Simulated scan of single mutants.
Amino acid sequence: MDSTASSPVVLVTGASSGLGRATATLLASQGYRVFGTSRTPSRAPEAPFTLLPLDVRDDASVEACVAEVLRAAGRIDVLISNAGCAFVGAVEETSIAEAQAQMETNCFGALRVMRAVLPAMRVRQRGRIVAISSLAGLLPPPFLGAYAASKHALEALSESLAYEVRPHGVHVSLVELDGMRTGIPFARPSRREPSYAEPSARMLARLERITGDAGGDPAELAGCVLDVLANPAPALRYVLGKEATLAVAARRQLSEADYIRTMVGRLGLWDAPTGAGTRREGA
């Protein structure tokens, strides 16, 4: 693209590291004018794109950030809603405050930014919103109840929004991924129930592996987002990765009992059979 004036303007939330940084960097290299966000830009390493302060949990912060992009670039063509956090703990251990904090970032934070960019997109009759979701939003695993709930909510909001804004020239897509090297820290319950200690610790160790060195390359997500933006008629959902695709297919094709047995066995969180899925469906 020849100039910043003609380059599509992209806002990427949570772009100081991990998935957001990889996506923002790739888009910038492809000629997009990219504005990334971070709660503390001064602590982030130097980036090939503009990095602005943003806390998606705060209305005023969202309004100020979007206003700054509009002042600097005159428009926002694309929103990549990526900012997120993760809480690991049994549902019984999860306090209302902890569940609310999870929803505040992953669901309400995304909603705040969507609402802030939509009026100008709707007036211009064009725009793209890509929400970075998770396989957990489709297939909730044990010990990620609050996180999965926040991603379920993001899925619902995004799908409803996709129908609502399509007549106004705005396309909405979800990218559902699993096991990427995000380096995301995991919050834990303030009150622990010993009955869940061992399987919960195993789940945490598994998550730390697949979001660390054993996880997929964030460049895969960045490439997927680039493909979504290049598609004049993008799909609503994109499942990223072979394992995630197989898991979604298994959930659709297997009976509920067989799926539960498969998932419990695959995760390996319990040493002995728990009885999950042994009751006949409909019984």
Rank of each mutant, 00 (worst) to 15 (best):
Gly14Cys: 04
Pro199Asn: 00
Phe49Trp: 15
Leu138His: 11
Ala24Leu: 07
Gly145Cys: 07
Pro8Tyr: 01
Arg124Val: 07
Val88Lys: 02
Ala131Arg: 14
Tyr163Leu: 03
Asn82Arg: 12
Glu256Asp: 12
Glu93Trp: 07
Ala230Thr: 11
Ser133Glu: 00
Ser3Arg: 15
Val228His: 07
Val225Trp: 07
Arg128Trp: 11
Pro119Leu: 06
Arg206Tyr: 05
Cys107Ile: 01
Cys224Met: 09
Leu207Asn: 00
Ala72Pro: 05
Ala205Met: 00
Glu198Cys: 10
Ala90Val: 04
Ala148Leu: 05
Pro45Gln: 12
Tyr196His: 13
Gly275Tyr: 08
Ala148Phe: 03
Trp270Pro: 06
Tyr163Pro: 00
Ser16Glu: 00
Pro141Tyr: 09
Ala22Tyr: 06
Ala47Val: 13
Gly223Glu: 03
Ile76Gln: 05
Met263Trp: 08
Ile129Leu: 02
Pro140Trp: 03
Ala149Cys: 12
Arg252Tyr: 02
Arg192Thr: 06
Ala235His: 06
Pro53Glu: 09
Leu174Cys: 03
Gly36Gln: 08
Val172Ser: 00
Arg188Phe: 10
Ala90Asp: 02
Pro8Gly: 03
Pro194Lys: 09
Val113Tyr: 04
Ala233Tyr: 08
Gly223Thr: 06
Val9Leu: 07
Arg279Thr: 12
Arg261Cys: 02
Pro142Val: 11
Asn82Gln: 13
Val165Ala: 04
Arg39His: 03
Ile129Arg: 03
Val264Pro: 08
Thr182Ala: 00
Ser29Gly: 15
Ala162Val: 00
Leu144Ser: 03
Glu281Ser: 14
Gln102Glu: 07
Ala86Val: 11
Thr37Phe: 14
Gly145Glu: 02
Ala90Tyr: 02
Ala148His: 13
Leu54Ala: 01
Met121Asn: 01
Ser81Pro: 01
Ala67Pro: 09
Ser42Gly: 01
Leu11His: 15
Ala28Cys: 10
Ala5Gln: 13
Asp217Pro: 14
Pro8Glu: 06
Arg206Thr: 12
Arg251Gln: 09
Pro53Gln: 06
Gly277Cys: 15
Leu27Thr: 04
Tyr32Gln: 13
Glu46Asn: 10
Asp2Lys: 14
Arg128Cys: 01
Ala120Gly: 11
Asp178Gly: 02
Glu281Gln: 14
Met1Val: 05
Arg181Tyr: 06
Val170Phe: 00
Ser200Glu: 11
Arg206Asp: 07
Arg39Cys: 02
Asp227Lys: 15
Leu269Cys: 13
Ala5Lys: 14
Ala250Tyr: 04
Thr278Asp: 04
Leu226Ala: 15
Ala120Asn: 13
Ala101Leu: 04
Arg128Glu: 02
Phe87Lys: 12
Asp258Asn: 08
Leu269Pro: 07
Pro189Lys: 12
Glu220Lys: 15
Leu177Tyr: 03
Met263Tyr: 06
Gly145Leu: 10
Tyr196Met: 11
Cys65Lys: 12
Val248Lys: 08
Tyr259Trp: 15
Val62Met: 05
Tyr259Ala: 09
Thr278Met: 15
Glu164Val: 00
Phe108Cys: 04
Gly145Pro: 03
Ser42Phe: 05
Tyr238Asp: 01
Gly169Cys: 03
Cys85Trp: 10
Val113Met: 08
Gln253Thr: 12
Ala205Phe: 05
Val165Thr: 08
Gly216His: 02
Ile260Lys: 14
Gly179His: 01
Leu174Asp: 01
Asn231Met: 11
